[in-house]
Amino acid sequence: MAIEGAELVKAAAFIGAGLAMGLGAIGPGVGEGFVGGKACEAIGRKPEEAGLLTRTMLVAQAVSESTGIYSLVVALLLLFVV
């Protein structure tokens, strides 16, 4: 069967979208979990600071999340725009 150029580009975009989101999810997942772990450790030591520590944890996780969101944006661009 003859494969046209546009077909091939679409195929590459689909597999690229899958790989972008899949591989891009590894880092934020590990990083956010690490932050969560350290926050639990700190709360275990000083439970009275739980509010501050939870807020800080969420801010740090949000920053760590950003690369996951870049992956999501790139995946959606590859799926729907390219």
């Binding site: 679409k10 195929a11 590459a12 689909f14 597999i15 690229g16 979208a17 899958g18 790989l19 989101m21 899949g22 591989l23 891009g24 999810a25 590894i26 880092g27 934020p28 997942g29 590990v30 990083g31 956010e32 979990g33 690490f34 969560g36 772990g37 639990c40 995946a75």
Partner: peptide, 24 residues
């Protein structure tokens, strides 16, 4: 390629959160 990409996406995407949840 879309179906293969779906499998790879969920497969790789599950590794990081699994490890991270474990750390927490």
């Amino acid at each position: 390629m879309a179906l293969l990409g779906a499998g790879l996406c969920m497969g790789f995407g599950g590794i990081g959160p699994g490890v991270g949840n474990g750390f927490t």
